[in-house]
């Protein structure tokens, strides 16, 4: 029997958006251009143009014991070259940001290889070999997963995803890594992801329209599409809840077993 991946349950546009993000055969829409050099600056792990630091020799030059798994799994480029592992972290506002942590986790795992990702309530961190991380970060910033105003590139001090927006519609950031440029209408990053000032601001484009965000968001929200409106999703959540409750406690098994031990002949 062949199964077809469904990616995410639900019958609303929110669920559809989640499937679009997660499904690797769907090509994410490119919304803006950010230069490779600017991505390196934003990540702040090395200076633009600087070589990658390595933590081991290239895999080709290393001796390994025979391992079938190593033949089966093709290493990613960064691993082949022994490049160190670095991270990128995004925070997503609850005011209809395009992506949100769980959606990001699933998207990362379906779309990219060699990722180690961690989900928290308002942010999603991902670790990867540095060279591959840069390519991944670039695609995450340039595509529909990112909104300059409602998504933040934040390595530390991420607080803000559940707060009200500021007057320009930007998500609160205690370190103010990005500012709204009234003249151009664009959002400019003036600090890297941990808050170190950049030499020159990095332009990440115009914030998306709020109504457009309501269409492309993956967050259920009562003033847009509420979770309860999605019957299919509720059904799946309830099924999982019931299965975990029964399976987790083993109530049925325990009850039958106890009755049997108490001498009830009619029970197994």
């Amino acid at each position: 029997m062949v199964y077809e991946a469904q990616y995410a349950p639900g019958e609303t546009k929110i669920a559809e958006n989640r499937r679009r993000h997660i499904n690797p055969s769907h090509e994410l829409e490119k919304m803006r251009n950010v230069a490779d050099e600017d991505v390196v600056k934003l990540l702040g792990h090395k200076n633009p143009g600087e070589g990658y630091k390595t933590v081991h020799p290239p895999l080709d030059e290393m001796d390994f014991e025979e391992d079938a798994m190593k033949d089966l799994v093709e290493p990613i480029d960064g691993a082949k070259d022994g490049i160190r592992v670095r991270y990128v972290q995004f925070a997503d506002s609850m005011y209809n940001a395009p992506a949100q942590p769980y959606d990001r986790a699933r998207t990362y795992l379906w779309r990219f290889r060699g990722v180690d990702t961690g989900t928290l309530s308002g942010r999603q961190v991902v670790e990867m070999r540095e060279s591959d991380l840069e390519a991944m970060s670039k695609s995450l910033i340039e595509t529909e997963l990112f909104d300059p105003a409602k998504t933040g590139l934040r390595g530390a001090t991420v607080h803000g995803h559940s707060l009200r927006l500021d007057e320009d519609g930007l998500m609160f950031d205690a370190l103010q890594r990005y500012v709204y440029n009234k003249e151009t209408g664009h959002v400019n990053y003036v600090k890297d992801q941990v808050g170190k000032p950049l030499d020159e601001p990095v332009d990440v484009g115009e914030p998306l329209d709020e109504d457009h965000l309501k269409d492309i968001t993956t967050i259920y929200r009562s003033e847009n599409v509420g979770l309860r409106e999605d019957k299919e999703l509720i059904e799946v959540v309830e099924t999982i809840h019931a299965a975990r409750t029964d399976g987790g406690f083993g109530l049925g098994v325990f009850k039958d077993d106890l009755r049997c031990k108490l001498g009830d002949k009619n029970e197994r």
Binding site: H159, A174, Q176
Partner: peptide, 22 residues
């Protein structure tokens, strides 16, 4: 409101000025 630190108090940029416009 949300507190705005004068200096970054956490992470690799600890100790740097925040210079928040607010």
């Amino acid at each position: 409101g949300e507190s705005l630190p004068k200096l970054i108090n956490y992470g690799p940029a600890k100790g740097l000025e925040v210079n928040h416009q607010d």
